[in-house]
Design a protein around this nucleic acid. Sequence first.
DNA 1: CCGAATATTTGACACGGTGTCAATAATTTG
DNA 2: CAAATTATTGACACCGTGTCAAATATTCGG
Lengths: 199, 199
Amino acid sequence: MRPREFDHDDVLRIAFDQFWRNGVRGTSLSDIARDAGLQRGSLYNAFGSKEALFLEAYERYAADYLLALQKALGAGSLRKRLTAFFDLTIMNFRSGTPPRGCPTTRGLMELGAAEGEGLDEDARKAFAGLMARITALVRDTLSAGAARGEFGGDPAAAALHIVTMTRGLAVLERAFDDEPQLRKIAAHTIDLVLGKSGR
Amino acid sequence: MRPREFDHDDVLRIAFDQFWRNGVRGTSLSDIARDAGLQRGSLYNAFGSKEALFLEAYERYAADYLLALQKALGAGSLRKRLTAFFDLTIMNFRSGTPPRGCPTTRGLMELGAAEGEGLDEDARKAFAGLMARITALVRDTLSAGAARGEFGGDPAAAALHIVTMTRGLAVLERAFDDEPQLRKIAAHTIDLVLGKSGR
DNA sequence: CCGAATATTTGACACGGTGTCAATAATTTG
DNA sequence: CAAATTATTGACACCGTGTCAAATATTCGG
């Protein structure tokens, strides 16, 4: 067999960077091929379609991101953990020049727009899976905090609330381009969930 | 002058319905022209471009939606008002078969993907304006509630929190297609903002 | 009532993007 | 070294956006 002339993971990274920077709609396979130094046909041969390539790049990124979130949630008081969680989330939206927005939400909203087509359903599932895993991480962190007396509510409900807030922040970031406001909203959320006193 | 052969507002309604149902990306001007019974060229002549047409249709819808929200926020106890607000929001996401998602958020995320191009910036501004106006409505409702002793926190911060939650719900609706869960999250948010007792 | 002015409609065209396919080229294995 | 297998390449079809000139319909002034 003839071997590939490119590295699979390299292309996924290049593609995700493009998708993140310019959106799925705003990125053509010609763009990615040019950046990766190969022909469009090779991408089709290796990945099947633009959306399949996006999906692979997305899942690769999601795995890394999940690890980073886990790390952020893993040290200090419950308040410190949640603060680190929101900090990482917001920093992620604001990375790049200009800020690229939420890498996991933008793709879904773009692809999820035209549903029932097969691949879009796969994108939806990938996103739903990531959200479920993030929610589980936050829930476990809250449960552990509750066991130490740092939290008194329902961990599952609070985790869902927190994750919903991160998705809302992802949308508002696109609308307002106002990082201090995002941070204020996040701080307020932590206060609300933990009780303003800080316990 | 030769008069138009179609009604401006009719076309905006037809277009917005298509955009809402199939997404901006998934709707071609041929689709809209077919539904409206005219030629593609007439749409370009009347509206300039696909995105300009979307924008006009969007703003027309947003004005109606804002009135509906205002009405929902206008009667009963503060808890009842907020409940009606979230109910309307969620019902909006879930309307249509299959549910069409949030009419105001989807378009932004699709168009906001490729930024710095002029018209996308207009879409961002339109969305930001709508969000600001909704936030103001909620803030005023909370302020009035505070004056009646139904709420004890910071109305501006709480309003921003609530609106952020609605955007998060708009995203999660696409991911999970689980209406009861959306309602649970909304109820939990109201409890958190007003204090679980209900005062 | 007629013609000029003006805006709308129509259809052809260019362009770019996705995706397919057959032909070609480069390895590995027998 | 030859056969088999896979990757690459370039041409093609198709669809969507957007532009333009020609044709058409209406209004207004004389």
